[in-house]
Design a protein around this nucleic acid. Structure first.
Lengths: 106, 106
DNA sequence: TATATTTGCAACCAATCGGTTTCACAAGCA
DNA sequence: TGCTTGTGAAACCGATTGGTTGCAAATATA
């Protein structure tokens, strides 16, 4: 089974869970309260996120607090870098065009 | 059918296609040559990418050149912003800890 | 100890996914 | 006018997905 961060963030519910626990650690029940779905379904999502190492658990009594492994999010950022180079180049090209126009106006 | 950029980049073949045509426009056949799969399968991926407006087509005779809509990639970048804020805050917190240690050393 | 709460896991289900094969339709070329 | 080339679409297939229900285990509480 493929388990990577791109597959993890493909699901909108999982993206919402990620955004939720990014701010503070939460229990599965507390997370499920925010969604129109069952606790078990959220539990499944958390399992997937854990398998991708996007999420870490901390047991407190019978409760388990889930929080985001923010470092893992940088993998997406890193993948975007190759395209960032391109859109910056495009921007520079546009910049050149603009400055050429400016010179012509003088 | 859900069609968004996150679902589009979830598949590794589609990510590879995106990276390929980011540099230069290519025909479906030329793209398929780079993968261990059929042209029709690549065609399906291109349809999905087109539906997400991640890709644009340019017909030249009977050939169709596909290229990346680089602007659309910024949607992922934009989504990452919320987390970028967090990891920068973490960094600042670490920075504070380090400067506190430095002061104590004096 | 008996009961309630919090959780994960397994079994099942309909829908979707990624792939293949087959076909249809243009556009170039002999 | 045939024939080849480049392409998309449809039909089908096994695997995976996201959801549900039901159950078991562990912890807290009476």
């Amino acid at each position: 089974m493929r388990r990577d961060i791109f597959q993890a963030i493909a699901d909108p519910t999982r993206r919402a869970i990620i955004a939720l626990i990014a701010l503070q650690a939460m229990t599965p029940n507390a997370i499920a309260d925010n969604f129109n779905t069952t606790r078990q379904s959220v539990s499944k999502h958390l399992r997937i996120l854990t398998e991708c190492e996007l999420v870490k658990q901390e047991q407190q009594g019978r409760e388990i607090y889930y929080s985001l492994e923010i470092e893992k999010m940088k993998e997406v950022d890193h993948w975007l870098n190759q395209f960032r180079k391109i859109w910056e180049t495009r921007f520079n090209q546009l910049d050149q065009v603009l400055s050429t126009i400016k010179k012509q106006e003088k």
